[in-house]
Design a binder for these strands. Structure first.
Lengths: 225, 225, 225, 225
DNA sequence: GATGAATGAGGCTTCATTCAT
DNA sequence: TATGAATGAAGCCTCATTCAT
């Protein structure tokens, strides 16, 4: 479950030719924006370079001035996506120190779902591409690992504080509970399961806390013992 | 999260021409088997009809004697897959009546992972195709709903017995915990996260039980107080 | 404008395998009938052997028991067509000896249009096929020649009686006036020019008679001198 | 027999992509020319896109840069054909005012035959295609209507001058006599009936004039009474 | 006779990529 | 830089015809 590298997301796109002039910069941006629109609308496979060029209002050949393949623009779009994703997910107001554990977890889950919601279409496309493009699968995995590592560390801390059972393997648990949150977001936003946002956040957090044996909610809310 | 219909999986493939003679039957089966091998090896998009025919050792045109498109064979392969999946998942030895709740859940999780393992490559491909083919997305959803419904019913039962907190919504919980199991299987088998089978089953079950507030393991196993 | 051979239509189809048993006879007839229905409905090019077999409710391979190609069934259908055409065109009640010339011409024209009407769809298809199939073009030409020869002989007779100007070449005139009648029938029946049957017959006959300098209608009908 | 619209031939081809550069212009023209050569040589059905590209010495895919289908190039070829046809048919030296009626008709017939002769092969192919392509059938019909309308108007004029019998319906007559000229041209040029040009023009004109009761030739040429 | 399976040549179309201007 | 033309590999699909049973 480990992968080397410490950055959140690998610099990833290095080859793509960068424009020199302002005009070039504009053209390039138009291409990336056009690509994202089309990927979102039609998916990766159904989008072709001719379409992207046309959508960006440049000639077919111009595309190759900035990118060498569809994969390359896609990587750039994804790069933006992940950055945006993490930015949104972190934008939750700085956790006040006094917040209970379950409140912090809830805050995190809410952030994740919200970020997912904001980037739903592209997340779906990334999901799709990751199933057949190893390089993007890796990107996807790295983005994921970021969350898993964070959670695993937290669990270890909770175990040290005696809040979480030592029988629980922090990495397995982080991965599995992360899967629960991530996949539930996907089902909700992309596949269209009929969650209601508030309930979803609450239920996810309840299950998350329960799974680790953490108390959810104020007082002795969880189980009448 | 509901879908109408009561069957496990819709009859799904109806049109594909059935052979009349034994020879035809053999040929058709060879095509389906060849298709599955190639889908597993190369994915859906990269597999083409020419390859399938060659792999089945029949001429190009013969494919069209039995199927009208790649989608059609794929549907057939998936149909087999889901049937197989459900068969394996149920093959866990009939639960002895005396088994504890957590044992039954563990048994179910083990079955799921095992079925996933046995059909790993095709599950991945189905996942892939479901991202861009609505008809298969529906199949995927129906297969999933089968598990969710089962779990939700169980949770309701447990709530009635006072084993599970009434604050937990059975359908949300079934969906979310199902996502956890399903997605973890995927990550393990397809993406290659480094789970060890026994631990994975154990950890999944621990989390599952904990999330619902059910006791895991014999005696006071769960939290060293 | 001459072609060798004296028969109205060449025996044309000789090769086609004739059935021996009554069952075979039935099958063969079913194929020819099916072929005609499909040719009429969809034209020659769009009709294929699979369709014909299916329409005749026999297996694909059975077609080849009786015919070696689409052209061959088509030839048979056309053979029937031309026979039918000539039968209808002659069915006009035997001209009573006392009839005026223009009446006989009118009768002939009416017969032609009626025959055309009865076989419209197939005539159109034959027309179509004759444009790219030399063998059928020949058949078409022979059927046509029959009428031209008849007319040319009649014109010669009329010239000998002093009814028609000697400057008129009987063969050219027969061919050209035949073209007028034939093509007008085609335009009316197949292309859909909006003729009214009675007027068409009358006008055709007027023009036909006028062209040859024959009197049309009773008394001094034609031009007030 | 009427069709609305006043233009000679509908604009007909609108979609086909036009080249921007001179090089593109050259290539496109080469494709159209190649297409016409092959249509003339082999007919519509037997000509395929691969052949056209090869004949134009461009790659297969280049064809699709300018046309989306065989029908599309064909439409363009036909468009040229009809324009050329009408140009030639009108190129007869401006009728001198003093010419007799029959001379003018003869001149018109000669023009028609000559135009037919110059475009014989393509006229045959158009005839062929019109039998199974409704859009081209319409084009064919419109081109035809142009002549019919012209003739009908002339006949009306002659009737007003008392030159033509009022019993003759101008539209029927124009259509039918037009059919005679048109179809005779076809038989001569395409099917190969053995006309001699001069005689054909003369005989056609004789019949045409006679049919309408107009005098043919100088003095009392027509019928020795 | 009849069947239905198998064949493979023949055509169509798309699209990523290169290139001269 | 930008353009648009040209390329050709890669896939798709149809259907006349043959053949073993």
């Amino acid at each position: 479950m480990r992968e080397s590298g410490n950055e959140i997301v690998e610099p990833f796109v290095m080859a793509a030719k960068r424009p020199v002039t302002a005009r070039g910069e504009r053209t390039r941006r138009a291409l990336v924006a056009a690509a994202r629109r089309l990927f979102e609308a039609n998916g990766y496979v159904a989008t072709n370079i001719g379409d992207i060029s046309a959508e960006a209002l440049v000639s077919h050949g111009t595309f190759y001035t900035y990118f060498t393949s569809k994969e390359e623009v896609f990587a750039e779009v994804v790069s933006d996506l992940i950055a945006d994703f993490q930015r949104i997910a972190h934008d939750e107001p700085a956790v006040d120190r006094g917040a209970a554990l379950w409140e912090r977890i809830e805050r995190s889950n809410r952030g994740y779902l919200r970020a997912y919601e904001a980037n739903a279409r592209m997340m779906a496309v990334l999901e799709q591409v990751a199933t057949f493009n190893p390089r993007l699968a890796k990107t996807r995995r790295q983005a994921r690992r970021y969350w898993v590592d964070r959670s695993a560390k937290a669990i270890v801390g909770w175990q040290q504080q005696g809040l979480v059972d030592r029988h629980i393997d922090p990495v397995y648990a982080a991965s599995m509970l992360g899967s629960m949150v991530d996949r539930s977001s996907y089902l909700w936003v992309v596949v269209g399961e009929h969650y209601e946002f508030g309930s979803a956040v609450e239920q996810l957090t309840r299950l998350y806390c329960g799974a680790l044996g953490l108390q959810y909610g104020r007082a002795s809310a969880q189980r009448a013992s």
